[in-house]
Design a protein around this nucleic acid. Structure first.
Ligand code: SF4
Ligand code: SF4
Lengths: 153, 153
DNA sequence: TGTAATCCCGACCAAATTAGTCGTATACTA
DNA sequence: TAGTATACGACTAATTTGGTCGGGATTACA
């Protein structure tokens, strides 16, 4: 539960891989898939989605493939997950959903919605760059994310 | 994706409900289920798990049922989710798992593990009490949760 | 003692979601 | 034009989740 889908996982990995190989003009889906031993066709579909979402550029034909369309540090994990799995909410309801309609009955929805935002915030604060140089460079010194925390009260 | 299961959701609701009715010595699974219109048998199983995990006391027989075994503010959303759905990790791997064994191949696992901890931390900081009085009383003033944030770097 | 209410628990089935495959069309390069 | 690649939708398979059933054990009380 509360798991990232493998697709999102693959997507992040692929993006990270591309970020680590800026020299190549383009890497094919197969290249990346082979590098990690994941199904090439599945990864292809994922990369297509990321392309449509604007974070990759694609090139068909021989020597074609994918390359980052933006700077690695401007792509957040959140965007990636969003593009691959669609909008995410930890509750089944949340705004705009056809989920469980306990509506007024349910008073835990609001606090949970805040948890949701917190998680989204965390995910937004992580860039592909952060993943690539995984020797974790302190990007948020001090307590500038204080707002993320206020959800408990 | 990244969704709370309905079981966990139900569990939180039930706990909140019990927290709101401290006068009753015990409420049956059916009582709670009816209050929210959720399947009684399913809720029963959930409550059993919470009982085994020590956050509820149960009483069989006529006029039996469940009651909180601890103060509502000492029960965190995290415990509840853990008891109902088992250990949660956003990645398929994470320590102790039989998940995807890209092992050394995968360098995104470590940053994601930190995201995981952050989420866990947030969940831990929310008590049943917080859910019950959902007019959100600031429980964490200032920036005492700074550590939750350092995952980005 | 007997009965009704209730918890307990494992096995089971059904629905939903996720993972992965296939087939075909299209684009690009040499 | 041959070969390599993306694009995309439909399909199937695997896994997870949601929910049900049935039998058994406890307890209260008449
Ligand atoms: S129970 Fe409440 S929080 Fe959960 S899905 Fe339904 S309305 Fe949302
Ligand atoms: S790809 Fe990496 S992060 Fe994802 S499950 Fe496998 S080892 Fe873990």
């Amino acid at each position: 539960m509360l798991k990232l889908t493998k697709k999102a996982d693959y997507g992040l990995m692929a993006l990270k891989y591309l970020a680590e190989h800026p020299e190549s003009p383009a890497l094919s889906a197969k290249d990346v898939a082979d590098a990690y031993g994941i199904p090439a066709q599945l990864l292809a579909k994922i990369l297509q989605r990321l392309t449509k979402a604007g974070m990759l550029r694609s090139q068909a034909g021989i020597n074609g493939g994918y390359a980052l369309a933006k700077d690695a540090r401007t792509i957040s994990a959140y965007e990636v997950i969003l593009a691959i799995d669609g909008p995410f909410f930890i509750t089944s309801c949340s705004k705009g959903a056809k989920g469980c309609e306990l509506g007024p009955n349910c008073t835990i929805r609001e606090p949970l919605a805040r948890v949701n935002e917190t998680i989204a915030g965390v995910l937004k604060s992580i860039s592909i760059q952060d993943l690539a140089e995984h020797e974790s460079a302190p990007a948020s010194p001090g307590c500038d994310s204080k707002d993320l925390i206020t959800l408990t009260g």
